[in-house]
Design a protein around this nucleic acid. Structure first.
Length: 495
DNA sequence: ATGTAC
């Protein structure tokens, strides 16, 4: 008997847990919708989206997933969805959910996703587009040469063995810098200064470590990319100046994650939690929401392994940024690429937030959602304190990307969107769009594309994504973050 | 996202 074509989703559809309530949306404002508590929901759902961006319940299960997440043990305030929300594993991508650690709050790998600590890094150059001139093609050639991309192996740097890999897992980007790959200033501009605390390499399986040994400093595939971009528009002059951004400036955006290692960590711990969940009396409406209390052996083990994978992802982006500097040095004669910021959009973090007027330790799941600290937050480096955290929002291939800043309003535990948000599945996109035609179209538009596969290109066609400009406009209207600058690509490296 | 199933 063949099992070809049997998707994971189908395999997990039948489940005997909590019953999901149907999705009933109440329009609160033109950019905010509420799903009232019903059935086993412990909190309401809040969806930040314009009518245009709202997923259709018929075509996309993400709003049902918002409802399902609202049943998680210990969840507080609301199950949130950002304007780029779409269907994911268990949780929607573009989902934010926080659980109260002291109230048996749960942690769920599905609330982080398979690509643990996937995120974005933006480096700014001293060059304007005009100064780069015709050297762009040579620069893209160097970037293609120095940046491993696509599925499987290939790395900028390999650890000497298990002992050194363990240091990557515990010390992240800081270890990369200690080994000479970058500067102290780079770390200052990383979320958590490049190191997520609480990592334990022993919570990471041998198999996961084996997969990670040869991928540090690699892009991967899918929506991951390295782009040479130009600042196309500034929305907030004061914040743009503080961020070191001005119109016409050349920047480098890197979008990558924890590769095979993070994927394996997620798989390992989902399996372990599925087996353990019953012992804690936890029932969920979808098996993909497997979770255990944060304060349980399985919960602590997941968070320790997740932090290790996050550190791997941070080291990965640090090495990719260094490779970009080398490419600029060779092709353009400067390696002065200064970090604006590096931030994850797939992570669960223990953070203290005000809940019901009291400070409360929460496990904040951000899956396809970016942390967005407001001005004055103590975790910001001094230079960014007055303006807030840079939020990096990559658009779909060939379209704009955005830089935002955290807003004091930000009600979703200081979180915002993470990208354009997929509209059409990879499979459907593949049948709709020709990769080679897309390649020609981008070339005609003046974008230098260095892509690994036509199939990958087809899957990432911008017509398969929402309009990122509309997504960030909604984010701003909803008071989640403020727009600072819009960047457009002139060169794309993709798996 | 991912040695696109082990």
């Amino acid at each position: 008997m063949t099992v070809r074509g049997r998707s994971t989703r189908k395999a997990t559809r039948v489940h005997d847990g909590r019953r999901a309530a149907p999705v009933q949306l109440v329009e609160e404002t033109p950019w905010r919708w509420r799903i009232d508590r019903a059935g086993d929901m412990r909190v309401p759902g809040i969806v930040f989206a314009s009518r245009q961006l709202l997923p259709t319940v018929a075509a996309d299960q993400s709003l049902q997933q918002v409802v399902n997440v609202a049943t998680l043990p210990g969840i507080v305030r609301a199950s949130y969805a950002m304007p780029d929300v779409h269907w994911g594993y268990g949780f929607p991508i573009g989902g934010v959910a926080a659980t109260d650690v002291a109230d048996n709050g749960a942690v769920s790998p599905g609330g982080v996703g398979f690509d643990i600590s996937c995120g974005v890094r933006l480096l700014v150059t001293p060059l304007d587009r005009a100064e780069l001139g015709p050297r762009l093609a040579a620069l893209m050639d160097q970037l293609e040469l120095l940046i491993p991309k696509g599925m499987g192996k290939g790395a900028v740097w390999e650890p000497a063995g298990d002992a050194e890999l363990r240091r990557v897992l515990t010390e992240g980007a800081r270890y990369a810098v200690e080994r000479g790959h970058g500067t102290a200033r780079d770390l200052e501009r990383c979320e958590d200064e490049g190191v997520l605390a609480g990592a334990d390499p022993d919570a990471v399986s041998e198999r996961a470590k084996l997969r990670g040994l040869h991928q540090i400093g690699s892009l991967g595939s899918g929506n991951h990319f390295l782009e040479v971009q130009v600042v196309d528009r500034v929305y907030d002059e004061n914040v743009a100046v503080a961020f070191g951004l001005h119109p016409g400036q050349v920047c480098v955006m890197i979008h990558s994650g924890s590769r095979g290692l993070g994927h394996q960590v997620c798989s390992d711990h989902v399996g372990r939690m599925e087996a353990a969940m019953g012992r804690y009396g936890i029932h969920v409406p979808d098996r993909q929401l497997a979770c255990v209390p944060v304060r349980s052996p399985e919960g602590e083990a997941y968070l320790a392994a997740m932090a290790a994978a996050a550190n791997y992802g941070r080291a990965n982006r640090q090495l990719l940024g260094e490779a970009a500097r080398r490419a600029f040095a060779r092709a353009v004669g400067t390696d002065r690429l200064e970090m604006l910021y590096d931030v994850s959009h797939n992570l669960a973090k223990l953070e203290t937030h005000q809940v019901g007027g009291r400070p409360c330790l929460l496990c904040v799941h951000r899956k396809g959602a970016t942390r967005a600290l407001p001005p004055g937050h103590p975790d910001l480096p001094p230079a960014l304190g007055p303006v807030g955290q840079p939020v990096l929002v990559p658009g779909s291939m060939g379209t704009a990307s955005h830089v935002l800043a955290g807003d004091p309003g930000g009600e979703a535990f200081h979180s915002t969107c993470h990208g354009a948000g997929r509209l059409v599945s990879r499979t459907v996109a593949r049948h709709r769009v020709s990769g080679s035609a897309l390649r020609r179209q981008l070339a005609r538009a003046g974008v230098e594309v260095r892509a690994g596969s036509d199939r990958g290109l087809a899957e990432e066609a911008p017509t398969s994504y929402k309009d990122v400009d509309a997504v960030v406009e909604t984010v701003e209207l909803a008071g989640l973050a403020r727009r600072v600058a819009r960047l457009v690509p002139v060169g794309v490296i993709k798996g």
